[in-house]
Amino acid sequence: MDALLQILSPSFLLRNSVYTSVLIGIACPLVGVFIVMRRLVFMGVALPQISSTGVAFALSLPLWLGFHLADHGVQAAHTLAFAGSIVFSLAAILLLAFLERRGRGQPEGRLGTAYVVAAAAGILLLAKNPYGEIGWLDMLKGEVIAISNFDLGLTIAMLTLVLMVLLLFQKELIMVSFDREMACILHKNVVFWDALLYILIGLTVSVSVLSVGPLIAFGFLLIPALIAHRFARNMSLLMTWASLIGGVTAFIGFWIAYQYDLPVGPTDVLLLGTTYALIWMAAGILERHEKSSKFTED
């Protein structure tokens, strides 16, 4: 209980980490719902990895160009890392979406290749970069500790943008995802709406990877949406529930990690996985119970 009170205290040393975890827990599932609905789960795996390779690439740039990042302060490194993350994420998502639209080859094969090549490139980039290695390892482990005010501000801005776009354009984004042909027939600009959604996903992934790493980013993109899908009644409730599950899990995960001195990322993801398994079993039992009740009534 002491740990909880400490976390809730406004003077808590790691308060930025708590806020950022919870905000990412809320934001990722909002776009994650579209990843699950559009059956782009493989993209959800590959994208955080590509984004983190973008961070590694960006952190390697100063080394290649012959100047020291440390001379320009932490802010410069964060800005550079964010730029790398967002450029790689957006380029990857737009390229993958373009190839998807052309409909040639195997999408799973492309995404699997993108994932493994990105992971390998990241390792190679860091093999020659001691500065990047430190940041990379923290990121891989999901150590949500060194969260700067810059990261927190970025996360708040991202969540605000995601919420605003989804509130304003939910009907267009759902329609284009659900029935693309109908959207075309009604003269909706499907390329624009697809691009908006992909940019939103790319932005969310970039900010999340930068703050909490690829593992948590993927966990929060996927699992809360899958949990909420078991019981939500409609698309608005699906997004609301997924977002709430993400936010609450992020907070509880942080609490458990702080209490038992564990890395936050794996704790969050394990907690999400356990919740999903429990909900899945409970829903199965409930369905069987309903079926047997109906059978008895008949």
Partner: peptide, 21 residues
């Protein structure tokens, strides 16, 4: 149409008016 979407019959039918909204 993919059954994964949590849309009611009404919400699907409502898409017909989106061209005017």
């Amino acid at each position: 149409l993919d059954p994964v979407y949590l849309l009611t019959g009404f919400e699907v039918a409502l898409m017909g008016v989106y061209g005017r909204v």
